[in-house]
Amino acid sequence: MLNETLKPLAELPDVSFIDNDTIDAMMQRLVSNYERRYQEITGKEVTLGAADPMRIALYAVALDLYQTEQYVDRAGKQDLLKYSYGEFLDGLAANRSVSRKEATAARTTVRFTASETKDYALAIPAGIRVTNGDGIYFTTVEYAEIAPGDEYVDVEAVCTAEGTEGNNFLPGQVDILVDPLPYIQSVANVTTSEGGAARESDESLAERVYLAPSGYSTAGPTDAYVYWAKTFNAGIGSVVPVSPEPGKVDVYVLMADGSMPGEELLQELQDYLTEERIRPMTDLVTVKKPEAVEFSIDLTYYINRSDQAKAVTIQENVKKAVAEYTTWQTSEIGRDINPDELVQRIKAAGAKRVELTAPTFAVVGETQVAKCTASAADNGGLEDD
C-alpha cells in the first residue's frame, strides 16, 4: 500500500511526454502517410493490404520508432518525483541535497564479565567478536576495560553484516566469545540489538525528497521532524510529532516493520534531533515510542463450491491477506483498528464470506499504535454459491 505521505503525488494527473501515443496508432500513421505520399509523388492510388510486404516493413519500422518514444517518455518522467526510480531518483534527490541511505548494521551493548576482580584493568580491545552461535557476529567498536575492582564493563558492539539480520536479539542471546580474552568469564548482550536497515528503498527515498523542503526551516514544522527522523535511520517507519504544550515537542516513532524502537535507538534519535542545525532553539524535544493498543484476529472464512478446484490456492491467498492486513494495521501510528479492511482483503483473496469474531473497530489515538497479540483464520469449508 502506498505511503500516506506520497498519496498527493499518486493523485496527480498522469503525464505523457509522447501525448499517449500507442503502437497501433503509430503503425496506422506510417501506413496512411505512405499511401498519401505515394499518391502525391506518382499520381497513383495505392492501398497496402494486410499481407503487403511494404505494410509489414512499415510495421517493423513502427516497432523501433515506438521503442524510441518509450525512451523519450521515460527520460521525461525521471525528472518527476511521481515516476522517478533507481539511479534517476538518486539524481533527482541530489537536487534537494538528499541522498539515499545505505544499509546500516545493527548495534547492541555487550557486557564482558571477569572471572574475578583484579587490582589492575582488564583490556577489551576494539574488534573483539561475539556471536549468537548461529552465524551472526558483533564486534566491539572501541577499546574498553574492566576497571580495577570492577566485575564487568559494557561495550557497544556492531553487527558485522549490514541490514536487518542483526536486529531483535534479546538480552542474553548474543553470548559466545569468539576471540578469547584472558580472565573473561562470560559475555552477553544487555540490550536488544536494533538499528540495522537495508539500503533505502525508492519509496522511502521519494518520501524524504518530498518532505525535504520542510527540513530547510528552523521554525519546527511537523514535516521537518518527520524528515529528520527518517533521515537518521532508514529502518524508521511511522513518525508522529506532537506538541503537548508550547515549546515542547514529543516525537513518536515506530520501525518500518511495525516493531517498537528500543531505548538505545530512541536516545540516539533524540540526540540527533536536538542538534542545533535541526532543532529550533525554543523546542524541548523528546523521542518516545507509541502506546500499544492490543487486538486479536479470530475469524472463519468460507469458499464457494464452484471454486473447489482452486481451494488450496485461495487458502494460501487468505493466509497472505491476513498477514498483509496485520502489517498494514500495525505499521502506522494513529491508524484505527479497522475490521472492514481485513474482510475486504480476505474476500479479494477469493473467499466467499467471512465470519469475523475479532477484531472490532477501535479508535487508536494520535500517539498510539495497534498491536496484534494473536491471529487465527480458520477455513470453514465449501459452501454453495
Rank of each mutant, 00 (worst) to 15 (best):
L2K: 05
K7E: 15
S16E: 08
F17H: 13
D21E: 15
D24Q: 13
Q28A: 15
L30W: 12
V31H: 07
N33T: 15
N33V: 14
E35F: 11
R36Q: 15
R37D: 15
Y38F: 15
Y38E: 13
Q39V: 10
M54G: 01
I56C: 14
A57K: 11
L58K: 13
V61Y: 06
V61D: 08
Q67M: 12
Q67C: 06
T68L: 14
E69R: 14
R74W: 10
G76N: 09
Q78N: 10
D79E: 07
Y85D: 10
E87L: 13
E87H: 12
F88H: 14
L89H: 01
D90P: 08
G91S: 09
L92I: 06
A94Q: 14
R96D: 13
R107E: 08
F112Y: 10
T113K: 05
E116I: 07
E116T: 12
E116G: 08
Y120S: 15
P125I: 11
N132F: 03
Y137M: 09
T139P: 01
E145R: 10
A147P: 05
P148S: 14
E151Q: 09
E156V: 13
C159S: 15
C159N: 13
T164E: 15
N168F: 13
F169D: 10
G172P: 09
G172S: 09
V174P: 07
D179M: 07
D179V: 12
P180D: 14
L181V: 11
Y183K: 12
Y183Q: 12
I184S: 09
N189S: 07
G196T: 06
G196K: 05
A198M: 05
S201R: 01
S201W: 02
L205H: 02
L205E: 01
A212P: 05
Y216P: 01
Y216S: 08
S217D: 11
G220P: 04
D223H: 05
A229D: 03
S238Q: 13
P241E: 07
P244L: 03
K248H: 08
K248M: 08
V249L: 04
D250G: 07
V251Q: 04
V253W: 00
M255P: 01
A256D: 15
D257C: 09
G258N: 06
M260K: 13
P261W: 00
P261H: 01
E263H: 03
E264G: 08
Q267D: 11
D271P: 05
L273E: 03
E276G: 03
R279T: 06
P280R: 03
D283P: 05
L284Q: 14
V287I: 00
E294K: 08
E294D: 14
Y301I: 02
Y301S: 02
Y302D: 01
R305I: 02
D307W: 01
D307T: 02
A309W: 01
A311P: 04
I314F: 00
E316R: 07
V318P: 00
K319T: 13
K319F: 00
K320M: 11
Q329E: 11
Q329V: 03
Q329H: 00
T330N: 04
T330G: 04
S331G: 02
N338Q: 05
D340Q: 10
L342H: 08
A349I: 00
K352Q: 10
L356C: 11
A362R: 07
V363Y: 04
V364E: 03
T367K: 05
V369Y: 03
T373L: 03
D378L: 09
N379T: 04
N379F: 10
G380I: 05
E383F: 03
D385A: 13
